[in-house]
Computed example of a mutant assay.
Amino acid sequence: MPQRLVVTEMSHEPRKRFAEELRRLRTERGLTLRDLAKVVGWDPSLFGKMERGGTLGGPEVVQALDQYYGTGPLLLIVWELALADPTQFKEQYRRYMMLEAEAVSLWHYAVSAPPGLLQTDGYVREALAAGGLRGEELEQQVEARVRRRKLLEGEDAPPFRTVMSEAVLRMQLRDKRAWREQLVFLTEARPNVTPHILPFSAGLHGLTNTDTMFLRLSDGRTVAYTENDVRGELIEETERVERLQRAYDAVRDLALSPAESRSFVLRMLEEVPCEPST
């Protein structure tokens, strides 16, 4: 077998590759960061951060760079790959996210927060900030997590069923406008999303303290991902997954129907004060 040809020594990781492409294109033109800022716009410090991998920047600046360098949509394509790159997330989530992207159906139980796939921008931002993220790291994580919602969009989107504890609706955001937007988002009809609310009156059950996501894969297997405040675990052993599924089925039997659940969320929405008009 002939030796594999190494075409380039550049990284195969989308985020690093994006930074390398930016640096290569600029240096091949013999430009400094200040030179680039003068002809394209934006602050030279932004281009420096992008080339060091500190930030991805926004689509507008990436499109402007593509236009200046005459690279068509090349940089924008690499930027989109970098934005969706699962390596932006912690190690424990990476394999799970790759499997999530391949899943043909998903079902979920939420303890105290809306499922990530149904979180609005405002919810994601406040939740991550509450966890201590700030500045560029916060912006990058918001971008990455919000982008996950695309999994449920389009004609080929997988069906997704979620059972949310009433605690999800009681744990409000400090930003009341963002909280109203989140509740409204949960009431909006989507053909592939089936939401249920599990009221407190249902009592204790087998998943009381455990966020759980099940993924049905194209090969017929089902895997589960469980998460609490301190750790997450991807479960692939058939016996353990089946035990969790039985617990989930029991929880779903206790939950309100989708129509009842929507009415429940709308009643909660009435309790959130509207901001006074200005």
Rank of each mutant, 00 (worst) to 15 (best):
L5G: 11
V6R: 13
T8H: 12
E13L: 13
R15D: 05
K16Y: 04
F18D: 02
A19N: 06
A19I: 10
A19E: 00
E21Q: 11
E21G: 09
L22T: 12
L25Y: 08
T32D: 06
L33W: 04
L33R: 13
R34S: 13
D35I: 08
P44H: 10
P44E: 05
S45T: 14
F47I: 06
G48R: 11
G48E: 00
G53E: 03
G54Y: 06
T55A: 05
G57V: 07
G58L: 02
G58I: 02
E60Q: 14
E60R: 15
V61A: 07
V62K: 02
Q67L: 14
Y68F: 09
T71N: 03
G72T: 09
G72D: 01
L75C: 01
V78F: 06
A82D: 11
A84V: 06
D85R: 06
P86R: 12
P86N: 04
T87L: 10
F89K: 15
K90I: 13
E91V: 15
Y93P: 02
R94L: 05
Y96H: 14
A101D: 09
A103Y: 06
A103E: 03
S105H: 09
L106W: 09
L106N: 11
H108D: 13
A110I: 06
V111F: 08
S112L: 10
P114T: 05
Q119N: 00
V124P: 04
A127R: 12
A129C: 07
L133W: 00
E136Y: 10
Q140K: 15
Q140N: 12
V142P: 02
E143M: 15
E153I: 10
F160C: 09
M164C: 06
S165Q: 01
L173Q: 00
R177E: 13
R177A: 12
R177M: 07
A178E: 04
R180S: 09
Q182E: 10
T187Q: 04
A189G: 13
R190L: 03
H196M: 06
I197W: 01
S201F: 00
A202L: 03
H205Y: 07
L207C: 01
T208H: 02
T212F: 00
F214V: 03
R216G: 06
L217Q: 10
Y225S: 03
D229H: 14
R231T: 13
G232P: 05
E233Y: 00
E233G: 10
E233S: 14
I235Y: 04
I235D: 07
E236L: 02
T238D: 09
R240F: 06
V241Y: 00
E242D: 07
E242T: 13
L244I: 08
D249M: 08
R252P: 01
D253M: 07
S257Y: 01
P258R: 11
P258E: 03
E260M: 04
S261L: 03
R262M: 07
V265F: 04
V265P: 04
E270F: 06
V272W: 03
S277T: 15
T278A: 14
